[in-house]
């Protein structure tokens, strides 16, 4: 059987996780290529609709990475983001897709190792969960609706 390679969309805050990913690269740390990074100005900018659209378009998992508690450059964007993640987790549970496909993590810009480890962990977790059950949806059709 062909090995399942999950697609994981990671919304990374410019001030922490995105820089941490950069740091991971500078340190030559290995992490799975399944993580597709989208840089955002703050994790608080990530809305429920971004997370669910990523899943609808075929992502198997979504990671939202924000600053450590109290370190948000915009005061509480990370807290707001975690509330939206909880909302989407509940919605995914309701429709049987599974809220565990979405995770919120906090880290600082210097935590390259943490980013690499998070990427490894979530890839492992999604691999166990299997492909997104809604993945067979034709992406072309979805884009027409937008």
């Amino acid at each position: 059987m062909e090995k399942f390679e999950p697609v994981i969309v990671a919304f990374c805050c410019n001030y922490c996780a995105y820089t941490a990913a950069d740091m991971a690269g500078s340190k030559r740390l290995c992490y799975p290529p399944n993580i597709k990074i989208i840089r955002v100005p703050c994790s608080g900018k990530v809305d429920a609709i971004h997370i669910i659209k990523a899943l609808e378009k075929g992502a198997d998992g979504v990671l939202v990475a924000g600053c450590l508690e109290g370190d948000c450059h915009f005061k509480n964007g990370n807290i707001e983001a975690s509330k939206k993640v909880t909302y989407i987790k509940n919605l995914l549970d309701e429709i049987g897709i599974g809220g565990e496909r979405v995770e919120m993590v906090l880290m600082s810009a210097g935590m390259g190792e943490r980013f690499a480890q998070t990427a490894i962990d979530i890839t492992k977790k999604i691999r166990v969960l299997g492909p997104n059950p809604a993945k067979s949806f034709t992406p072309d059709k979805a884009s027409n609706d937008l």
Partner: peptide, 20 residues
């Protein structure tokens, strides 16, 4: 926004059942 979220949620719920 809620229309967009519900639309995605419904799409996924039915796709899971193999229905478009």
């Amino acid at each position: 926004k809620e229309v967009g979220i519900l639309s995605s949620a419904l799409q996924m719920a039915f796709m899971k059942e193999g229905k478009t």
